[in-house]
C-alpha cells in the first residue's frame, strides 16, 4: 500500500544529494524553527539547487553538512579566512569554521504557505539586508523573548503548585 510520508532530513539527505547531482532542483519541507520567522517548521518548504562553487556572501543562506553528519540550512553571518560562520535567524549561537566543501546546496526560493519567495527578488534582498544589519538588536530581542517564555513557564508552575 502506498503511503505519503514525511521523512527526516537525514533520511532524505542521500536522495537530495543524488537528485542535485542529476541536475534537479529539490523541494524539501522545513524541519525546525531555527530560521523562523522566514521559514516555519513543517509549514514551509525550501527549493534547493546544487552548490557548484558559487561565491557565498554574508546574509546568504546555505544548506550544509556538519562534521557530525547533520544537514542544516542557516545564514552566513561572517566570513573569515575562507571559512563561514553560520547562524539561524531565530538563534543567537554562532557556528564557526564551515568550509566550502561542506556546502551541499543553495536555496533559491522559500515556499511560505501559499506564497513563493524567490530569493533573488527585491523584497527578499531588502529583508536579507535588514536582517543582517539588525543582528545585534535581534540577539537582544530573541534573548528577551526567550526570557519572557521562561518567566511565563515558571509562573505557571508556581500557580499550578
Amino acid at each position: 500500500m502506498p503511503i505519503q510520508k514525511q521523512y527526516s532530513i537525514d533520511d532524505l539527505a542521500p536522495v537530495i544529494t543524488s537528485l542535485l547531482a542529476e541536475g534537479k532542483k529539490v523541494i524539501v519541507s522545513a524541519a525546525g524553527n531555527s530560521m523562523y520567522p522566514l521559514i516555519r517548521n513543517q509549514k514551509d518548504a525550501i527549493v534547493l539547487t546544487a552548490y557548484k562553487g558559487e561565491s557565498v556572501s554574508i546574509g546568504d543562506m546555505i544548506f550544509y553538512k556538519r562534521t557530525n553528519g547533520q544537514y542544516v540550512l542557516h545564514r552566513v553571518v561572517a566570513i573569515e579566512n575562507g571559512e563561514f560562520t553560520l547562524m539561524g535567524d531565530n538563534q543567537t549561537l554562532q557556528e564557526k569554521g564551515i568550509t566550502n566543501q561542506q556546502i551541499i546546496a543553495l536555496p533559491i526560493a522559500v515556499i511560505r504557505g501559499k506564497k513563493t519567495i524567490v530569493l533573488s527578488s527585491k523584497g527578499y534582498l531588502l529583508y536579507k539586508k535588514a536582517w543582517t544589519k539588525t543582528n545585534i538588536f535581534r540577539k537582544a530581542g530573541i534573548g528577551f523573548f526567550n526570557l519572557r517564555i521562561r518567566a511565563s513557564k515558571r509562573l505557571k508552575k508556581i500557580i499550578n503548585k
Partner: peptide, 12 residues
Amino acid sequence: DTADLRRAVSLN
C-alpha cells in the same frame, strides 16, 4: 526539473 520531496509516496 524539480523533485518535490514533500510528496514522496512510500511503496512496498
